[in-house]
Nucleic acid binder design. Structure first.
Lengths: 216, 216
DNA sequence: TCTATTTTTGATCGATCGATAAAAATATTG
DNA sequence: CAATATTTTTATCGATCGATCAAAAATAGA
């Protein structure tokens, strides 16, 4: 008997993601959101609660679409070591190819909202931990198939790679220069070879992967 | 003939730093600032221009007091390699010992204001570059005195260490867990030994250094 | 077609935002 | 003391903030 929704909830969430990705939580007004979502203010509140709840929903959707689905795709398409390399190179490609310097919404949120919102902080920490777990899991798998030496410390190297990706995403918003970002990544990725990373080898481009502009 | 200032400009700037460090640029109101600076709103505008200009002044003071003076102190007190190690360990100590999770104002600002403010972005990028230059300079110096193997790529390792510190500062606001932060740093610092970083050695605490609570 | 239920619309709430005008206060200089 | 220059104070500006209310509109089942 009820009147049905006149808008698509997922598309509205994607519009909200675009807003929050561009300007963060505080700097995005409910009016900005409503306009880009193609609805009126009260419809937003009716469908999503308040601004913070909408933000949490948008963040969750972003995590699934941008991080989890990509991780699943990498682990399906590539061997473990290549999956790690491609993930990091992808972060670089996304960073240098975005003239708006949006960086990563998860990292942006880690800095803007995590310290002042206990519930969101736990969720954001869990998102970042999924990235670390991806590294950890694939290092172990790569050691099993022999592409990463068994002497490499999996736990610490996974943490280092998380730090490298976070650092790249900070620079993505400040100084997204390819030479800089590849310089950050190269010694970290060289750890997976177990060599002493002395000679500076070429930084192989990631294989071309479909890129969308607006969707995370 | 003019009536003199009734407040100390540096102390007012320190109060402004405390505000911006806690909540960022957007979330800090002029009324918050005026109250913590011990002045009235119009006095703030009279002395510092507008909020953004005050922010730029606060950021510059923070950079000098928190980064440049520390770098100078480290390079004066320690040998080059120890200076690097202590800088990174310091970032960890500051991160795990701050229950308010303030992180680093430069990194926070890199994410909040850099993408939307060209002038501040250039300044923030320059601040971060000073950190990279510190790493670069001391790697070279350490290689000269033989504490870092000559085979280590100085340019890339400096960039990696910048990325590691930035990553640590992101986690400082989200999940400042000592084991995690030390895990991020350990393989990065091990690169300075030129060894294959396999065995997980103990993470030596930084020597106790005076800590101030409110002042950067 | 009528009724029940929900969504959408248009208007607006009090609070707070950054910033300022005008006047009072305080110092130095002549 | 009087003139001048600056700061501080008090009050407030218009704009925008997140959020809400009442009423109209729309759709399903009875």
């Amino acid at each position: 008997m009820p009147r049905p929704r006149s808008f698509d909830e997922d598309k509205a969430l994607d519009a909200a993601i675009a807003c929050f990705w561009d300007r963060g939580l505080e700097a995005t007004s409910v009016r900005d959101l409503a306009e880009r979502m193609g609805i009126q203010g009260p419809s937003l509140y009716n469908a999503f609660g308040d601004k913070r709840t909408l933000f949490a929903r948008a963040l969750e959707r972003y995590a699934t679409r941008t991080m989890r689905e990509r991780i699943a795709r990498l682990e399906h398409e590539y061997d473990p070591k290549t999956a790690i390399l491609t993930f990091v190179r992808d972060a670089i490609e996304r960073s240098v190819s975005d003239p708006r310097r949006r960086g990563c919404l998860l990292v942006n949120s880690a800095l803007e909202v995590a310290p002042h919102d206990a519930e969101l902080r736990v969720r954001i920490a869990a998102y970042l931990d999924e990235i670390a777990a991806f590294f950890r899991r694939n290092i172990t798998a790569a050691q099993k198939v022999g592409t990463v030496p068994p002497a490499v410390d999996g736990a610490d190297t996974a943490r280092l790679l998380l730090g490298v990706v976070l650092g790249i995403r900070v620079l993505a918003r400040t100084n997204p220069d390819r030479a800089l970002l590849e310089g950050v990544a190269r010694p970290g990725l060289a750890l997976l070879d177990g060599r002493r990373p002395r000679t500076r080898r070429g930084f192989n481009r990631a294989p071309p992967q479909e890129r969308r502009e607006e969707t995370p």
